[in-house]
Amino acid sequence: MNEKLAIQVDDLTVAYNYKPVLWDIDLEVPEGVLMAIVGPNGAGKSTLIKSILGIIKPIAGSVSIFGKPYEKQRKLVAYVPQKGSVDWDFPTTAADVVLMGTYGSLGWIKRPGQKEKKAALEALEKVGMLSFKNRQISQLSGGQQQRIFLARALVQDASIYFMDEPFQGVDATTEIAIINILKELRKAGKTLVVVHHDLQTVPEYFDWVTFLNVKKIATGPVKDIFNDDNLTKTYGINYKVAVNK
């Protein structure tokens, strides 16, 4: 594994109305890992991603992406928000949503052209959704909507992918399709940070894990730190999962 750091977070503290939701987080993510962020509801998993991406302003601390502030590295980063964070009745098509992934590299004012449209169709094909390109997005199933979001991130052709619960509300087939794409991305040297809920699948899907509950509990390779001790510290109850070592 490359020892270069993809993401470095120092002393990050985030508060809503003076109540800390993330407290003094230090986090180092090496390049090329497929990392899960796990923790109970309200642990600040989504908030951590959002503050790394500058969507939420932290009250203290700093973040760097390959050694530089996020603002300078936007084009290296792709983001898949929670599916529930957008209005799927918005008047647009699947292909058009994927095309939004190209907006970042275009910058202000410039419009997407043939090159961008072609890239969007290729990304749709990668997630097996090409035949749905003209479908209105509200006419897609939950799993299909999630694939569209994944395609939108793929079209950004980034080095780091942040994903907020990409398996939420999808059927088993889609879950397998998505994890296979994520594993392919890792093979291609990309770094992936995924907010994840299903503890059972962590050892199978991921090679790196961060335990989070307002504070960082632990971070490291799944095979070393995904154990009952850390799970208990994170979830506050005596946790037993079958870990295949």
């Binding site: 969507i55 928000p81 004012i109 997407p112």
Partner: peptide, 22 residues
Amino acid sequence: ILFFKELKVSTFDVGLSSALGF
């Protein structure tokens, strides 16, 4: 006409719009 793309993405998906720098 100038900011159609930006208005569209920020209306549909605030998080993405912010992450992309709009």
